[in-house]
């Protein structure tokens, strides 16, 4: 029994499934005024795809893959900086209104 380990895919899939439930429950109570900021922060967070782009752009050797990776890093960076900055801006306006 000790020599047999669970297929890593099953473990990843477990994490995936549980995270779906977390996402499901976490946003139910959101106030309507926060819909757009929530959307923009979610968008910024989904730019964590940059992790894959970094791996693609990381090797020393030049390749198409490295170029694609670098472009993907740039696109994700627009999102990360833009997304969090614009969310902060929206939230500061929201506070003033109150």
């Amino acid at each position: 029994m000790h020599d047999i380990i669970v297929n890593p895919f099953i473990q990843q899939f477990s994490v995936f499934l549980l995270a779906i439930f977390v996402g499901y429950y976490v946003v139910w109570s959101v106030t309507p005024a926060l819909h757009t900021p929530l959307m923009s922060v979610t968008n910024a967070i989904s730019s964590v795809i940059i992790v894959g782009a970094l791996i693609a752009a990381g090797p020393e050797a030049m390749s198409i893959s490295k170029i694609l990776g670098a472009i993907a890093i740039g696109l994700a960076a627009v999102n990360i900086f833009g997304g969090f900055a614009v969310t902060a801006r929206m939230l500061s306006m929201y506070k003033k209104k109150k």
């Binding site: 990843q12 994490v15 995936f16 499934l17 995270a19 779906i20 439930f21 977390v22 996402g23 499901y24 976490v26 946003v27 979610t42 967070i45 989904s46 964590v48 795809i49 992790v51 894959g52």
Partner: peptide, 11 residues
């Protein structure tokens, strides 16, 4: 990536 993807996907 898996957790974030699932989180963003379902939310």
């Amino acid at each position: 990536l898996i957790v974030t993807g699932a989180l963003v996907g379902s939310s």
